Simulated assay, not measured.
Amino acid sequence: MKTLVCFGDSLTARHEGKDNPRLTEKISFQLPTFRVVNAGVSANTTKDALRRIEKDVLIHSPDLVTVLFGSNDAAVHKKVALNTYEENLLKITRLIGPDKTILITPPPVDEALQPNRKNTELAKYADAVKRVSEETGSYLIDFYKELYAKPHYKELLVGILKDGLHFGDAGYDILANLINDKIVEIESNEEQKID
């Protein structure tokens, strides 16, 4: 059985009132051949991520790792400078291995409910994720673009907290589907290489 580690902040970690983290539960359902490990910790930035990557991610010898940070790095009260954020993501990707890393851009927020985060800023952090993906040859999911393109995206950001950042089931469905599609694509490309 292959191992997928979901590495991130509260968007990865949240249970939304259920017994298990919503993200890993939905992915496990879609990808029954994977053991899915949740390595999400609320309030984390990429600086925190580097401090715990060994014990929370690498120890599992994962086949694939989703990396979703940036919502806190871009926040006014936790700010990690954009160039530092990009450097941290480069380090994270190299530690995991680009061929095993699925970088995910941080999603937009409902600014009316989020005084500490602005979408113009989050878009810059999303662009940094894309640059790291290009530079390292790692996989990319543009979650920011996928959500922001939906006319009713603010409705998808409604979770238990109703804070415009932590989404509920609708948001997790989108994210889980994007991850599932990406992994299916990766797996079929690998099979073609073998054939």
Rank of each mutant, 00 (worst) to 15 (best):
A81D: 09
A13T: 08
G171I: 05
E86G: 01
L89Q: 07
E146Y: 06
D142T: 09
I141D: 13
K100S: 09
D99C: 09
L82V: 12
H60V: 04
K55W: 01
D73A: 02
R14E: 13
I141V: 15
D173P: 11
V36Y: 06
T105S: 15
I194P: 05
I102R: 07
E121N: 08
N20H: 13
E54R: 14
V5A: 08
D173G: 08
K91D: 00
F69V: 01
K193E: 15
P108G: 00
V5H: 04
K182L: 10
V37R: 10
K91R: 06
I179F: 05
A43P: 07
V109T: 10
E25D: 14
N88S: 05
I104F: 06
E190S: 14
L64Q: 11
E16I: 11
M1T: 06
I104Y: 08
E86F: 03
L90A: 01
H152C: 08
K26L: 12
K55C: 07
N116D: 11
L31Q: 03
Q114N: 08
R52D: 00
S28P: 13
P106Q: 00
T45F: 01
K18H: 15
G171T: 04
P115A: 02
S133C: 05
G171E: 05
Y144N: 08
K182E: 14
T101C: 10
N88T: 00
E16T: 09
N38V: 04
F143C: 10
S42Q: 08
H152E: 14
G168V: 12
G171Q: 05
F7L: 01
L11W: 07
G164A: 13
R131V: 03
K124H: 12
N189A: 10
L23I: 11
D195P: 14
V37P: 04
T12Q: 02
